[in-house]
Design a binder for these strands. Structure first.
Lengths: 257, 257
DNA sequence: AGTCAAACGAACAAAAACGTTCAAAGGATG
DNA sequence: CATCCTTTGAACGTTTTTGTTCGTTTGACT
């Protein structure tokens, strides 16, 4: 078994159980405990886990930029459901800002499946993959500095394009959605780009966030919670927000998977 | 069993399992581990896999099945050689425009391999594939309208970015390079974008063109031949231009493959 | 607080995997 | 047939990874 496979297994187990222990993993993966510890350290330095005595826990407040591969592997039924529901909020003729992230990529996928006359303006380079040459959906990429970790572009140059485009909706993926701290992301440039998108859209601002983002606070603020009109989340996320004041200001939609 | 078949098998297995190991592959395909490693390296340079110790992992979640491998395998020795030579013309600290096309993609690949401090400004979205997060080469994408057929962006929005960037070199791929008609491409928007790039670079304009482009005239003109400073081509292309007046105005470099 | 077992880190040793070089085998070309 | 080129494999030294054995630290329990 490859080190990479082992670490992926550990990560998946950690995501399921929220924490893992060395003594549990070592016999299961048939390696020494020391190797497990080294794997844990490695995952820890990537920001996925947090070391504890005897094991590690999944870190909830991820303050570093998560590597794209890991994010992609996280891609789950929930994200798909959220993406589909968010896409259904758009109408023929819409021009919509979509920022980067794995959840918003699911949104773009669903929009393309609907195949109606919609123009997507995005900094998520991965959208390229999904785009068919004969579809009705048009894609405009904002340019700018490319960041390989998140497969997205951002920076001052991106602004100059966003400056020219006023969309009538915005679909925003976040790393943290907190009633107090608002919308947050781990990278400053991403936050700036997302903020610019929000400011340049005149219609409803739709935030997509699965359960693991709800209540989380990351480093850089993109917008206060008041700017948000709609939140699309999964069932667990909905439960987390039950009995909060969020529902008074924001329309919360639950995507069932 | 042909090397190509073997590599396709490896790729399919990798797509199924997310990763493959050398020790598992070698007996299964009845070749030495060294051969497997070479296959892995080859697939790695095409951007399909990523090497790890003992094997390789899928470079990303290609749950979207792209015909990318076909494109990658199309790439000929001549293009690679031309790309490498063109990349060697750049120096530390350069900012260089690179337009879209399969030949210029090879240039970008070679630039990234050199891994020195160079900023690439391009409308070729495929460059994303090749970009590592820890390299010294920076990539700026010009934004704009995405055209799925050529995997590139262009249009008025692209101009507004190009307008802000003056590069000190430009590497231009063309579909037609003719002493009389100049540089031509089959798509109007591409021609416009390329022209803008040429006009916004102050140093040498380097055209890359393999033999099958020499003497060809396509639909839309991007620039007259006088604007070109350097032409990088293959041996056959060089022969076609022997005894022409091109050599007097343009420095012709022959890439030997 | 003191005790103890589990967990940890450092150091070293073994094993696996790696890259490089060189030579042989198989095809294509002249 | 000779020659070139590509592909492959073997042998070597090097690097990475893994495991064992210490002594030390941590955290729980009396």
């Amino acid at each position: 078994m490859l080190p990479v496979e082992r670490q992926r297994y550990i990560q998946e187990l950690a995501m399921k159980n929220k924490s893992v222990s060395v003594s549990e993993l070592a016999p299961k993966l048939e390696v020494s405990e020391l190797t497990i510890r080294r794997d844990l350290d490695s995952l820890c330095s990537k920001g996925v886990l947090e070391r504890t005595h005897g094991g590690a826990t999944l870190r909830r407040n991820l303050n570093i930029e998560p590597d794209y591969l890991q994010k992609a592997s996280e891609c789950s039924k929930e994200k798909q459901a959220v993406g589909k529901l968010a896409a259904s909020l758009l109408e023929e003729g819409d021009t919509v800002y979509v920022n980067s992230g794995s959840t918003t990529l699911e949104v773009i996928k669903s929009i393309l499946e609907r195949n109606i006359d919609i123009t997507i303006v995005t900094n998520n380079i991965d959208a390229m993959w999904l785009c068919k040459s004969d579809g009705n959906v048009k894609i405009i990429f904002v340019g700018g500095y490319y960041r390989a970790k998140s497969h997205s572009v951002s920076g001052r140059l991106a602004f100059s394009l966003i400056d020219q485009i006023y969309a009538n909706k915005a679909i925003i993926g976040v790393d943290g959605f907190s009633p107090i701290a608002g919308l947050t992301t781990p990278v400053l440039e991403e936050a700036d780009t997302t903020r610019a998108m929000i400011e340049h859209s005149v219609g409803s601002k739709i935030v997509v966030a699965t359960e693991n983002k709800i209540g989380v606070v990351s480093n850089f603020k993109t917008a206060p919670i008041e700017r948000v009109d709609v939140l699309v989340t999964d069932e667990n996320g909905g439960n987390l927000l039950k009995n909060t004041e969020i529902n008074k200001h924001i329309q919360v939609l639950i995507a069932k998977s």
